[in-house]
């Protein structure tokens, strides 16, 4: 692995994503990506007494399903790296306790999926590990409880708000050289804060971080948007991705039709999710469901994924601090 430019690292041989699996809720299953979300669940309490327990059960099921389908023994995995958006990463921590393998918690809110993959790729490429399990997940009801209001509280959503995705995605990264999609470059983002205060307007808070990372990546690698089949941001939503395009256009980078936003494409327009989906589960499920499948079918050859995370807490927000954001990038080649 060697450094290229300021923030980008080129992996020496590429790290294979040998398996990926996703599990989503009903609302996501009814969205435009239904064909790519094979597994879903209708009861979003998962038969558990609390939503927090339900989220854990969802993540654990996703991981065990992936291991079962690909006939992988959990003890062959060296490290588990993952994150979610709840305080103290409770979901991932409790699931790691169930799995009983070494665990690194990676928190960058909704950017957890790319942070996990990037860290895992670096560890594998440096010959420290053979197999690493990565995951990210979110649940609408737990996020609502922690960040907003009680579920039965009668409030109206702003037209620029987003809907937390109920879903989990996990991937298995391995050193073995297979025909599977490979992570070839990673780019760690900087924390960027453009002074957005409104908790409902996550897209606007996170767009500058994504733009910063992507701009740096293009300079580091000396490439342009047309060199890639797909550039996907995590959960900027419709408004956020418009802002993202504008910010990059100001720097002279024009994104074409190959740019998508996972949050924007996960829900139907008529489902009243306003600007689209958000949450760590959004980019995780779209990547391991849709993008990974397309990469395996060789429909996409070169893909950039920039999951975006807003790093505030409700406490800092109430104290009047603006929302810092981060975006880590991974480049995956078929």
């Amino acid at each position: 692995m060697k450094k290229q430019g300021k923030q980008t690292y080129v992996l020496s041989s590429g790290v294979s994503i040998v398996a990926a699996h996703t599990l989503v809720g009903t609302k996501e299953k009814h969205g435009p990506l239904a064909n790519y979300f094979k597994d879903y669940f209708t009861d979003d309490t998962f038969g558990q007494p609390t939503f927090e327990k339900a989220e854990r059960e969802m993540l654990l099921t996703t991981i065990t399903e992936m291991l079962k389908k690909n006939k992988i023994n959990i003890d062959d995995i060296d490290i588990y790296i993952g994150g979610d958006i709840l305080n103290q990463l409770v979901t991932t921590n409790y699931v790691a306790e169930q799995l009983q393998i070494p665990f690194i918690g990676a928190y960058s809110a909704c950017s957890s999926v790319t942070e996990s993959i990037a860290l895992a790729s670096a560890l594998i490429d440096g010959n420290f590990c053979g197999k690493i399990l990565c995951s990210a997940c979110s649940h609408f009801s737990t996020a609502e409880r922690q960040y907003r209001f009680p579920l039965e509280f009668g409030n109206q959503r702003q037209a620029y708000s987003q809907w937390t995705v109920t879903g989990a995605g996990c991937m298995l990264l391995s050193k073995e050289d297979s025909a599977c999609p490979k992570v070839t470059k990673i780019c760690f983002g900087k924390v960027v804060d453009y002074g957005v205060l409104d908790l409902a307007n996550m897209g606007a808070a996170m767009a500058p971080a994504a733009a910063d990372t992507l701009h740096t990546f293009f300079i580091d690698t000396n490439t342009t948007p047309t060199d890639y089949d797909l550039i996907a941001t995590g959960d900027l939503g419709k408004l956020g991705s418009d802002i993202f395009r504008d910010l990059l256009a100001k720097d002279g980078i024009n994104l074409g039709n190959n740019y998508i936003d996972c949050g924007h494409m996960i829900f139907n327009e008529d489902e009243q999710c306003m600007q689209g989906g958000s949450g760590a589960g959004c980019s995780a499920s779209v990547f391991s469901g849709y993008i990974y499948t397309k990469l395996k079918e060789k429909k996409f050859k070169k893909v950039l994924l920039l999951a975006t995370g807003a790093l505030m807490s409700t406490t800092t927000n109430q104290q009047g601090d603006s929302i810092p954001a981060i975006s880590h990038l991974i480049m995956v080649e078929a």
């Binding site: 209001f149 009680p150 579920l151 039965e152 509280f153 009668g154 409030n155 109206q156 959503r157």
Partner: peptide
């Protein structure tokens, strides 16, 4: 919460909003 999504301030400004905010927190 469905009524409130429709009514907005129409449901939370009358005393019903006060009652809803207490009950929803208790249930949650």
């Amino acid at each position: 919460d469905v009524l409130a999504k429709y009514g907005g301030a129409g449901t939370f400004i009358p005393i019903s909003g006060f009652a809803n905010s207490i009950a929803s927190c208790a249930i949650e």
